[in-house]
């Protein structure tokens, strides 16, 4: 599979105008999280994206929020967003049904460097809803499996009920060429899997740190601890990638909201290497 060149990604003439998409399906993932599969209403629209990019998603008359794309980058025009209901807009999204309309601006931002190396180990570390922006990278890696050496997913959720994409994870786990480890912060009755925070999986995960590229996504504290743990194992700073979150309003570097030191998270990020941001990520209120 060939990924599109980033320059060709701008599907819209005016990046400030949303395109209309409609909901194809809605799936409840956990108590507060759901996945919408959407497609463009207008024919002739070709929506391509890279793993790790996001859209600005608009609910008519309610508002617009940045949401990462969680579908297969190989399937254009069939876009999925996994959304947690936390604010006014995401709660309104939670009420959408098949056939309802959404405004989409995007795709925006940088992507996971999936072609950074050949024959290297890939370690994907996800915390909570941080698995959503990593899923397109997983799809890409699995459909180009021969290009990589070991592929490992370390996924931490709050409780067993908060685990996203349960059926899919089971499928991934059954593959012989994909090492999947899931852990929860708090076990519940009947949970037979790991209990402990996701960082505890790192020391014992099977990968060769010398030749590993790591993709990390989750709450910022989790990403900091994970980076330190990966460094402790010997993964190189420039091979650790994190997906940052800030207040993104315009998505195109024109509104100033998502500044992180010299970077605009929306267009220079959200994916950064650890070496790019290590001087800022441990400072407060940047």
């Amino acid at each position: 599979m060939e990924l599109v060149e980033k320059e060709l990604l701008t599907t819209i003439q005016n990046p400030m105008l949303p395109l209309t998409f409609q909901v194809r399906s809605r799936r409840q993932e956990t108590k507060d999280t759901f996945t919408l599969e959407i497609e463009p209403v207008e024919s002739g629209v070709e929506f391509k994206f890279l793993p790790g990019q996001f859209n600005m998603v608009y609910v008519f008359g309610v508002g617009e929020v940045p949401i990462s794309i969680s579908s297969d980058p190989n399937r254009w025009n069939r876009i999925a967003h996994t959304i947690r209901m936390v604010g006014v807009v995401t709660k309104a999204m939670g009420k959408l049904k098949k056939g309802d309309l959404l405004g989409i601006r995007g795709p925006f931002g940088s992507s996971w460097p999936i072609d950074r190396c050949s024959e290297c180990d890939i370690v994907i570390v996800a915390g909570g809803i941080g698995l959503a922006p990593l899923r397109p990278a997983i799809y890409h890696i699995l459909s180009n499996r021969e290009k990589y050496n070991r592929v490992v997913l370390l996924y931490g959720a709050r409780t067993p009920d908060d685990i996203l994409y349960k059926n899919e994870i089971e499928k991934w786990r059954s593959r012989f060429d994909f090492e999947v480890y899931v852990t929860v912060d708090r076990g519940t009755t009947g949970w037979k899997g790991n209990v402990g925070v996701v960082t505890t999986l790192i020391p014992r995960a099977p990968f060769n740190p010398e030749n590993t590229v790591a993709f990390v996504c989750g709450p910022e504290i989790m990403m900091r601890f994970t980076s330190l743990e990966l460094l402790k194992r010997g993964v190189k700073e420039h091979n650790i990638f994190l997906s940052m979150e800030r207040n993104m309003k315009c998505g195109i570097g024109l509104c100033g909201h998502c500044q992180f030191g010299p970077a605009f998270i929306c267009k220079d990020g959200p994916v950064f290497s650890y070496s790019q941001i290590k001087d800022l990520i441990f400072k407060r209120e940047i």
Partner: peptide, 14 residues
């Protein structure tokens, strides 16, 4: 360390 991270309840509703 793991216990401290667990206490932070990182994936909680905030």
């Amino acid at each position: 360390q793991a216990t401290r991270i667990q206490l932070l309840d990182l994936y909680g509703a905030g």
